[in-house]
Structures are given as C-alpha cells and as structure tokens.
Design a protein around this nucleic acid. Sequence first.
DNA 1: TGTAATAGGTTG
DNA 2: CAACCTATTACA
Length: 372
Amino acid sequence: MELTMENLHSVSSHSQAGDLMSSPHARPSPSPSSASRNLVSHAPGARTAMVSGMASLLENSGGDYRTDPSALSGHLHPSISMCETGMSLSNTYTTLTPLQHLPPISTVSDKFSHPHTHHHAAAHQRLSAGNVSGSFTLMRDDHRGLASMGNLYSHYPKEMSVSGMGHGSLSPLSSGLGSLHNSQQPLSAYGPSAHLSTEAKMLSPVSGFESHASMLSRSDQEHLARSLGGHGHGMISNLNGMHHHPHSHLHSQANGAVMLGGRERHGHGAGQGVAGSGMQAEEINTKEVAQRITAELKRYSIPQAIFAQRILSRSQGTLSDLLRNPKPWSKLKSGRETFRRMWKWLQEPEFQRMSALRLADLFQGNHKLKLF
DNA sequence: TGTAATAGGTTG
DNA sequence: CAACCTATTACA
C-alpha cells in the first residue's frame, strides 16, 4: 500500500494545468462525495496531480488507500516555483472542500528523505542521496519561514483552551526566554502525560525527547545535532528544548504515558523499542491526539479547514467533529487512518509539518495560511 | 469576516 | 453503521 515515491517519475505537466486555472470549478459536479473522493481528479486534477506528486515527494507515502498511483508521481523538481507564482486560484477554504485526493500525508519520518533543505545549514548537504528534495523551491518562503520560526516563534498565546485539560495551565513554558521552544512542542505542557487517565495506555504523541530522538530520521538528527552543537545561525537553536528552565514546574519529563504503557499491550512484544518509522501499528490515543492537534492548530493559527484538507484530506466539519469527539480507537474502524495522519503529523518536526501544510496549500492556490 | 460547530445527508 | 461530506448556523 504505501506506494513509495520511487515509482513516480516524470509526471510532469502533461495535463496542462492551464485549463484548470481558467476554470476553477471548485466543485464541478454536484454529484456528491463519492466522486470526488474516489476518483478525485476532476478539473482540478491536473494541478493536483502535480501537487501531489510533490507532496508525495516530500512526504512520501501516507499509506492511504487512495493513493492512486496513476495520478501523482513525477518528481517535480524545482519547477515548482512556478506554481507558486503562476497559479493562485483561490479556493476559499471555507467552502473549499473540493477534497481532492491529496497526497498521502506525511509519513516521512522514516527514511531519509527530508526535504528540508535549509540552505544555509544545508550548504553542506551531506544528506546525500536519499533526499531528493533539495528541490522544492519554496525555499524562498522557507527562508522566511524557517527563520521566523526560529526566532519569532516565541510568542505564545497561552490561550490554549484545550478542552478539558485545563490542568496544565501550561505555564509560560518558555515564557521569557526568548528563544524558541523547539519544535516539539512543549510537551509536558499539555499534561497528557500527567494524567491521561482513561486511556493512557496507548501511544501518545507526547513523549518528547526520547521518543523523538529515536524517531527522528537521520537527517533530523542531523539537525538536532547541528543545533545542539551550537553552531552559529540562530535558527534552529536547540531542537530539543531540553534546556528548559528550572522553574517550569511541570515536571516535564516523560514519565508515564508516553509510549504504550501498560496493559493492553500484553501480547506483542514488538512495539516500543523500535520506533523508527513504520510503527503505526500501535493504537493511538485519539483523545490525546485530538487535543494536541487542536492545540497545535491554535498555536499556529491553522484553520481546521486547511489542516483538514491538506493533511488529512477531509473536510473541515469532519475534522471538527473528530477533534471534539474523538472516538476511542478501539471503536474506530476505517477512521483510524485519519487519526494516524494526525498522529503522524504531530510526530514530524516543525519544518515538515509546516511545509506540508504550506506547500500543499501553496500549490492549491490558496495561501491563506499565514506564513510562518 | 473568518472559523469552528452542527445538522442533515450520503455511501460503502 | 461508521466515516464523511455539504450546507448552515453560531461565534469572535
């Protein structure tokens, strides 16, 4: 199922994107969902194809039933830029929901295909092969993006009203310290690890350090290393956030919770240690994920609509519902896929998360996302 | 005005 | 029937 990107090759632009541009039928046929869902390509198809190609390129496989091979593929290479410039059909998200097939989200984590090319740092792209990436242009944006991320990320709207767990109060976390709190979110902030009660046993995004470390792909680690190493450039400063500060009393270390903890797991010994990439066989704590996603979306001001489409390929309404009443995983059937994606997204490093979003978005023509 | 929440409908 | 989608409404 996974469909790796290796196959894809030159999709290029055969289908001229031109027409779509001119005729933005947002939703062509009145015929409902099924059409768009399964077949996907319609008018927007062409563009989409391209996009998806790229997306897949970066995010490679999402494990999705629908990854229809035909369409995507194509290593687009650096041509992308043009998309950006040229097309800007706007779809408004609210209504947007054309739901195209969409690239299987991110799953990147594994392998070495990491797009982030930070130029500077990357200068010495020792990333070597594996990563095709280099390519996508969005760099220029990224430029800004990254930079800002590093620097301005700091502001923290403490508002997070993440549902029930007020408990956290989350504190200022990094409050003062101007630097960024690394990517992995404040972990502890959300207290999941703390109480998690109900279903604490499953895989939860939390974790933070270790798990992350283990999951990071090679290149990520590089980043990490680099950053930790000090090196110059203020950008990535420490990815790990370990530096924290004394005062954040929220005992942030990963205590309980984290990786599949207890009961439930009796049988399969496999699990944990591994991490790495493919592990998604585990159960996901949907509630947790929902909360975290909610929080992240808020944090970065990512509208549900966008996230839903770009990352999950679902509609805003659906996402909203999922976030607000996540079903237990055990009770999930096919809906799991969606949660996996969310979970996946949570796992990735900011860069990726963002680029996934922005990218897709960009190509879709709607850049509503405030660039980060 | 832009978003999130929800009600209602469809589908595999 | 679960999982979605779409349209509509509610909220800031």
